[in-house]
């Protein structure tokens, strides 16, 4: 219960941050990704502001084994830069550049009732399902 309430709170705050920053607007994101056109550096300031707060939080969190609510800290342990990371990130970046949507802003625009965001998020979830299917068939073929 506490865990889910904290999740709801964090999700809401994240959504507000995306709205305030202007990043829920794909055209603004594409303005950042368009280096050769008229460049809008706003996205770099969003990342900067978020990382500034994040640096403090993670420095603090790394010293703890339990969260404030008493749950185990689950920080990623994988430090390996492998083929999956490279190919996956490149695919994501191409998709991001095509429409100007990454997952968070897609969900905010969906919540704002944008039909095009419904199509984007639907396709994104379909993509995640395709990933799961590929993983499952790979796992069963190696077993």
């Amino acid at each position: 219960m506490k865990y889910s309430l904290a999740s709801l709170f964090a999700g809401l705050l994240f959504g507000f941050g995306l709205i305030v920053s202007g990043m829920a607007n794909p055209e603004k994101v594409l303005g950042f990704l368009d280096l050769a056109g008229l460049w809008d550096p706003s996205l770099a300031f969003v990342m900067g502001g978020a990382i500034l707060v994040g640096l403090v939080a993670f420095t603090f969190a790394k010293k703890r084994t339990l969260s404030f609510l008493g749950f185990n800290m689950k920080l990623p342990g994988n430090t390996h830069i492998d083929k999956r990371l490279v190919i996956g990130s490149l695919m994501f970046g191409i998709g991001w550049g095509i429409a100007g949507f990454c997952p968070g802003p897609g969900l905010v625009a969906l919540g704002a009732g944008e039909i095009k965001a419904v199509v984007f998020v639907g396709s994104m979830v379909a993509g995640m399902m395709i990933y799961e299917m590929i993983e499952r068939s790979r796992a069963s073929s190696t077993n």
Binding site: L13, F16, V56, F71
Partner: peptide, 28 residues
């Protein structure tokens, strides 16, 4: 189009969201 003020403010909110999720629930 450049909006440094709201971009920074929104970024701080996103950072606070990530920080609260991390410090309350211990997750990324």
């Amino acid at each position: 189009q450049f909006t440094p003020g709201t971009a920074l403010a929104g970024g701080v909110l996103i950072g606070l969201a990530a920080a609260s999720f991390l410090l309350l629930n211990g997750r990324i």
